[in-house]
Design a protein around this nucleic acid. Sequence first.
DNA 1: TTGTGGCCCGACCGAACGGTCGGTTAAGAT
DNA 2: ATCTTAACCGACCGTTCGGTCGGGCCACAA
Lengths: 221, 221
Amino acid sequence: MDSAASLESATPSSRDKILDVAEERFARRGYAGVGVRELAEAAGLSKSSLFHHFRSKDVLYLAVLDRIFDRIERHIGPALSGAGSSLERVERAIDGLIDAMAEHPTTPRLVLRSLFEDDDLPEDEPANEMISKRLDALIEGFSELLTRGIESGEFRPVEPRHAIQTLIGATVFHFASGEFGEALIGTPLFAADAVAERKREVKSLIHSGLNRSGSAQETPR
Amino acid sequence: MDSAASLESATPSSRDKILDVAEERFARRGYAGVGVRELAEAAGLSKSSLFHHFRSKDVLYLAVLDRIFDRIERHIGPALSGAGSSLERVERAIDGLIDAMAEHPTTPRLVLRSLFEDDDLPEDEPANEMISKRLDALIEGFSELLTRGIESGEFRPVEPRHAIQTLIGATVFHFASGEFGEALIGTPLFAADAVAERKREVKSLIHSGLNRSGSAQETPR
DNA sequence: TTGTGGCCCGACCGAACGGTCGGTTAAGAT
DNA sequence: ATCTTAACCGACCGTTCGGTCGGGCCACAA
């Protein structure tokens, strides 16, 4: 029936174009805010053709999310495993997370939406459950990392799950904040140096909060 | 939940009913995700009557946001002014911000939406500009607080605007995270003790990051 | 008594929504 | 030469969208 992932590299065309366009529009205006007509037109084909590639708007949206999580896992996966102290590994994971968010401006917005929106999406859709699983796995990876650092005495005994919430806010929200964030920070959020600075700021905040006594260790990247 | 109007006359007031209903629905599913018919029905009157109270869906949404910012200013305003060390004042502001988010579960979601969504709303609408002004003022208040703490040598020389982004993420996002957040933390986000714990966690993270002991712990490399 | 104005309604409007249907190409495969 | 199939399309479907319109009801002022 549906051989979704079987065709690989040799597809330059419509399907990917639709995904690209949908990713951008959905990120900016949300699932309910974008119509399939608009997507089809922007992708350069008719609405009927769009429905030829994706059986419904739902599955198109989920396909977009799927690609997003592919990219995130690609960036974070290597960072979570590997050697080093807990602090080093957490910092590497933060770098990876920020890289994932900065790769495409659409990523943080779609992730943020999928995190806080009580989705209108069908719960039964297998693609939906699969995405939840992947998200859970990522969270679990981070959680274990923090827990290990606390158990080994390297970190203060913070609640790891609260720290994860803060971390998500500091990374995902920052790069999702669009006009507001740019007005606040004063520069484009996705310029290479702005991304590098965000990494520095987040890591230094994680490392020693606002306290001066933490000393000014500039860990270069 | 009717807040201020309930002390007054026995009128539940259709207008307020509409605002209450709209606030809850918009918070959950966003501006584009909610139709005026649904709102009217949930408020117990007809669509035409809704349009008698609010000239368009836009102004209804903006009226909802307006109430939200009223509440936030009520909570944070006093905290920003007042005496004490910079750290004390920042912590008081964080308490106020979290109180504002925890007062109604709708608040953080609507704030988050208004921060990261490139709104479909008319830029010219005066109500829209007014909300932007109020947001700017809040940000400016926080920013001055941090800047003063840094200048006085009490805080590390972090970039205050980055710290603000992190702070917003740690507070607004946390309480906006709904199902995801509850699954992660493991308890209802808005229970009194959960709110208190979040205050503690955020303040301790702000205070000394993940580092054990507020001092030393030099990281080489 | 006769407004008058606040509040409410059913009926209706054109546009847009997600989705279907039948049919037309063009490229391979048999 | 025929059959299959992926890709595409225009036309159409029923529903819902935000919004309008004309009028009904009722408390209260003149």
